[in-house]
Amino acid sequence: MTWMRSWEGFLFLVLVLIYALNAWTSPVFLTVGNQINMVQLSVEKIIVALVMTFVIINGEIDLSVASVMGLAACAFGWMVQAGVPGGWAIVIALGIGLACGAFNALFIVGFGIPSLVVTLATMIAFRGFARVLVEDRGISGFPDWFNALGQRGLVGPVPLAIIMFAVLAVLAFLILQRTAFGRKVYFIGANRAVAEYSGLDVRSVKIRIFIASGTVSALAGIMFAARVGAIRGDIAQGFELDIITMVLLGGVSIFGGAGTMSGTILAILIVLALRNGMALQNITGHIQTGVLGVLLILSVMVPIIRETGSRLLARVR
């Protein structure tokens, strides 16, 4: 029963509780259609949360993800409008995401500037490029196949985006928890200096993580464009905070070195189920935001309380 005492075990119990509560209060909650909607409405965020887990465990942060999503989506829309075939527009937009990630990595790894500062700057800059690109317009009229991929079921009622999330979640889990690369991510995040003295290729690991972050964010941005069938300059704005919230709730330490992919995935499901359950109970956006805030505070508090508690217990003994 040790897993029960782990953070993941706790999250799992919370998830089961929320599912039970939702199912009890709304007959709609457990229907296939609603479960698909629930995931699809946030699928872009949760895909980026997977890669954000690597970033934070590695002791870094990437605040520019939502701006990269916006830039890739706007670049895609702009290219389609300019007559570039949809397939090429996707490839180029992904390339832009990769370049954004490489640009972040250049300053963080190359010049040694803290990622908080670099990605705060590029968060603003990439969003600016997106707005310059589409100016103050909305662009729609994407190819039918593109919209269909974002809006219709691919396998039965399950759309491509959810399948992609599932595949990426498994991949992310395997890479983080089962490969040498994953172990390096933890080791560097726990103590960068020791990792460097041990001869680990710290720089190459960080570069790869930021490039992955940029590319996956671009993918998520394109998926968002397909789901809503239109873009504008403010697309995905503010998503970075939701994404980081999910990762921290999953038990990933903001100081790096600790956390698991299964924690992130459980936290994602908790946030989605909680939001959906509240929406089905007609609870408004302000209260939803508040509840998620409280949840995040608790998730930070619980480990501290537990630690203090056990220390006190030890002293009593």
Binding site: S26, V28, G138, S140, Q151, V228, G229, I231
Partner: peptide, 20 residues
């Protein structure tokens, strides 16, 4: 999903809301 009969919408999402 809830099976509401009508939604009366003051749209702020441009055409992004059309698929929904």
């Amino acid at each position: 999903s809830q099976g509401q009969d009508v939604v009366m919408l003051s749209n702020n999402a441009g055409d992004q809301i059309a698929p929904a």
